[in-house]
């Protein structure tokens, strides 16, 4: 049974894929492999998971101002997440999508949702972002 979460569109667009979710923020600089799309922050719960093509569900990005550049590199290399869900508008992640659109006509959508909804999404859920702030969540049977 699918349920629908209403969020706020940060970057418009549609995407669907399998959720990779954590309540721990990640620093993309030193935490995301821009060649493989693997989460490489060895202190992070998602360490070792491949985020390329997934719907990455993270509260926000932590740390250095270089996170945006890493995410842009990963878009160019074809290993960026298909979409991002956060619990607040994240400037560092949103900017990567805006610049990727300018440079490569390849952006990814972002939706911010409230914390209780955020906590309800689990790794493995099937997610659809529809472009108007709706997130359709289908739990694996």
């Amino acid at each position: 049974m699918a349920r629908v979460i209403q969020g706020k569109t940060i970057i418009a667009g549609k995407a669907s894929g399998i959720a990779l979710a954590s309540s721990e923020p990640v620093s993309f600089w030193g935490g995301y492999d821009q060649v493989t799309g693997e989460i490489i922050d060895r202190r992070h719960p998602l360490s070792g998971q491949i985020a390329a093509g997934r719907i990455l569900v993270l509260p926000y990005t932590r740390g250095s101002s270089t996170s945006t550049a890493i995410l842009l590199e990963s878009v160019r290399a074809g290993v960026a997440p298909a979409g991002l869900i956060t619990d607040r508008p994240d400037i560092f992640l949103a900017l990567a999508s805006v610049v990727a659109d300018e440079m490569y006509e390849s952006s990814f959508p972002m939706v911010a949702i409230k914390r209780s909804d955020f906590d309800s999404i689990q790794t493995g859920d099937h997610i659809e972002i529809d472009g108007s702030g709706h997130i359709r969540v289908l739990e694996p049977s």
Binding site: T66, A69, E73, V75, R76, A77, P89, I91, A94, V98
Partner: peptide, 29 residues
């Protein structure tokens, strides 16, 4: 395009900048 992400409706002037985009991360930068 970043204005809505910042959640503000206007810009303001600056009189200097320090550019960190100089850090080379790969072909895209």
């Amino acid at each position: 395009r970043m204005l809505p992400v910042y959640g503000v409706d206007r810009f303001m002037d600056i009189s200097a900048a320090h550019i960190d985009s100089t850090v080379y991360m790969g072909i895209a930068t």
